Simulated scan of single mutants.
Amino acid sequence: MQRQIPISELSKEQLQILYDRMEQELEHLRSSLRTLHTAVSRLQRSLQCLDSLSHKEKGSLVMVPLTSSLYVPGSLADTKTVLVDIGTGYYVKSSIDKAEDYLKRRLKTVKTEVEKLQQLVSTKQEQYEYVSVALREKLIQTTG
């Protein structure tokens, strides 16, 4: 069983340690949130590409990405199936409909995680600000 200690009973040094730890934790949570937002953007872009592909015919000219900034001209050999990145370097051949369903499910899951993480960041931010005020007050008491 952990005993809770009122923040007012902590020394200046203890408050500084708590403040620093909370700052690191907040930065880690914000970084995770940015990563999830990037994942949402990529999934949405993938869904847009699938939609675009579903309107193309075999042999249509397209620009094929080799890297994030290098594209080369190519033509579509197959407009009925795609390779879907399922993570850790694995790809699965899938119909466009199944790929779209998979991406929508992933997008829903990631958006749910974003919401949870945003709530956690908000709560941690409030706690961080409370500790920040307590630390400033303690510093004023010791210098004044």
Rank of each mutant, 00 (worst) to 15 (best):
M1F: 08
Q2E: 09
R3M: 13
R3P: 03
I5K: 15
I5P: 02
P6K: 15
E9Q: 15
L10W: 05
S11F: 06
S11G: 15
K12H: 09
E13Y: 08
Q16S: 14
Q16V: 11
Q16K: 13
I17D: 15
I17S: 15
L18K: 10
Y19S: 13
Y19W: 12
D20E: 15
R21P: 04
R21W: 01
E25D: 07
E25G: 01
L26K: 01
L29W: 01
S31M: 03
L33I: 00
T35Q: 12
L36D: 02
H37W: 07
H37C: 04
A39M: 08
V40F: 09
V40N: 02
S41A: 14
S41N: 15
R42S: 09
R42A: 04
R42V: 02
R42K: 15
Q44I: 09
Q44E: 15
S46A: 15
Q48E: 13
Q48A: 10
C49H: 10
D51H: 13
S52A: 15
S52P: 01
S54R: 14
S54A: 14
K56S: 14
E57C: 07
E57T: 07
G59Y: 01
G59V: 05
S60H: 06
S60M: 03
M63V: 07
M63K: 10
M63Y: 10
L66Q: 05
S68M: 13
S69Q: 12
Y71T: 10
V72S: 05
V72I: 12
P73D: 01
P73A: 02
P73Q: 02
S75R: 10
L76V: 02
A77K: 12
A77C: 03
D78E: 12
T79I: 10
T79M: 11
T81P: 06
V82T: 06
L83C: 03
L83A: 13
I86P: 10
G87R: 10
G87Y: 10
T88V: 12
T88W: 03
T88E: 14
G89T: 13
Y90L: 13
S94W: 05
K98H: 11
K98Y: 07
K98T: 12
A99P: 02
E100K: 12
D101R: 11
D101K: 11
Y102G: 11
L103E: 00
L103C: 03
L103M: 08
R105T: 06
R105N: 09
R106N: 06
L107D: 00
K108R: 13
K108N: 11
V110N: 01
V110G: 01
V110A: 02
K111C: 05
K111L: 10
T112W: 03
E115H: 05
K116E: 09
Q118K: 11
L120Y: 00
T123C: 03
K124W: 00
K124D: 00
E126N: 05
E129F: 01
E129D: 08
V131R: 00
S132I: 00
L135A: 07
R136C: 09
L139Y: 02
Q141M: 07
Q141D: 06
T142H: 12
T142G: 07
T143M: 08
